[in-house]
Design a binder for these strands. Structure first.
Lengths: 255, 255
DNA sequence: TTGGATTGTTGCTACAGATCAAAATGAATG
DNA sequence: CATTCATTTTGATCTGTAGCAACAATCCAA
């Protein structure tokens, strides 16, 4: 843990991102917030403990990926949400309601904000309030979108949908058809409500169809955006995922 | 549509609910907000049109149930979220992002708030800001919980979970073991990501097990709360849903 | 109240994806 | 570079629930 100085903030990537909360701050606000903020880093797999959250319920993801996990009695695990660079996480109600565990999915750096200063900035700075409000609403609708992916989509459709979600959340990263997948297969499976084997098979189907190309485990290239979009929006695959029975699968004509 | 007067507000059930936004307003705030607010009613199945949302993006559910629906290309439909009495719905970003359609699931009465007045109250009244902020964050975590229900739970577990969700969202309604289900079987199936037939079968299993009693299509009694809780938390049923094979099913020992 | 339409239930069959097992690939360590 | 461990992929089988059809119950309008 290390205290922030206004100088630290000024070289922080978030401060330079005009759509981000930190970039809306006036110089005096920046001074007072940074004086009471701290950065912390976590390693992959580390859980952010409840007592830390109780003392620092508000923080910003500076780099890396964080997950919100739920656990069932018999050990089944779900990643209910991802948080990535720039996301402001507000856990101030986590004591009333069991919201799950925050776990780092990669090397993670967060900047913990003083709730008191945060609140006073939200009070006095309408632009900051508007940005933070929009961001929270966006998180809410993102969760709702995810629900609807999980509810009725098939495995292939969920994966296609997820690829677009990743692409939208990483707008900067050079070309549009190059998408970085910020999670391992197992994490991905837990987020999409399927098994890692199924994820792997779905990737294979999309590759065989020449819709995507998997260069690295965490980097794919979209070769046929319309086809991928079609699948993501529910052009139901005519085929099962089961190991190499029919070599190429067709889509049912989409409604 | 009818304009509100402060007198209307004072007899509105929301105003009397201390945990609600409207109850935090000072008399002058109430006067200015009510002067610019309108109530509208919808019948079951009616969609709240985009142009209405564009003009009135913020509203409060006064009575009835509203749903946020997503549609796939081939006609599969999902209810991604429910909104019930007291929920403040803020759709101000719905133009940027496709969030789905708002559809009334029952006779529905909403009170549309002027965004300008709403914003100015949020600016000047810290108590109102805190209530509305908590409520929005709660909606977000509710959506996340729902995601995790959909991701890894089996049909029976999802239904059990949903029964508790309904029970929590209707705390007032007399006894605790009496739960009102504010949706028809089909709506429920669309919310839980399953087929109406499966919902029906799951109800039957819970009844056969003497865990619940279904009095009415929209009213159930919980007979064995611990058992229901066990199922909801993922004590995986040892049995399939398929029609009356084994008469009584046991639970696997929960981890 | 009657009749027609909508919604819910029950039984049966089929299949998408879970599960188990094992090989293959990748990452970490000495 | 070799060795070990962790993760991913592939193959084969099994199962929970989707899908279909037929019937029963409920709702609604006339």
């Amino acid at each position: 843990m290390s205290d922030q100085t206004p100088e630290d903030c000024k070289i922080c990537a978030l401060f330079c991102d005009s759509s981000n909360f930190c970039a809306t701050l006036s110089p005096p606000e920046l001074v007072s917030l940074s004086a009471k903020s701290q950065t912390t880093t976590f390693k992959r797999g580390q859980t952010i403990h409840d007592d830390l959250i109780a003392r620092w319920p508000i923080f910003v993801i500076e780099s890396g990926v964080m997950s919100l996990q739920h656990l069932l009695n018999d050990g089944r695990k779900t990643i209910a949400a991802f948080y990535t660079r720039g996301d402001v996480v507000d856990m101030r109600n986590s004591s009333n309601r069991k919201v799950g565990h925050l776990v780092a999915l990669s090397k993670l750096k967060v900047c913990k904000l003083s709730p008191r200063i945060f609140e006073s900035i939200v009070h006095s700075n309408p632009r900051a309030r508007s940005v933070i409000w929009d961001s929270l609403r966006d998180q809410s609708f993102r969760a709702i979108d995810h629900s609807s992916d999980l509810a009725k989509k098939q495995a292939l459709e969920k994966l296609a949908s997820f690829i677009f979600e990743c692409s939208h959340r990483n707008p900067g990263k050079s070309k549009k058809d190059r998408v970085e997948i910020p999670a391992r297969r197992l994490d991905l499976a837990e987020y999409l409500g399927m098994q890692p084997e199924t994820v792997s098979r779905c990737y294979k189907i999309l590759e065989d169809q020449k819709i995507i190309k998997v260069s690295d485990l965490s980097l794919i290239h979209i070769l046929d955006t319309p086809a991928l979009r079609q699948i993501a929006n529910g052009a139901r695959a005519e085929q099962t995922i089961t190991a190499g029975t029919r070599p190429n699968l067709k889509m049912r004509s989409a409604g």
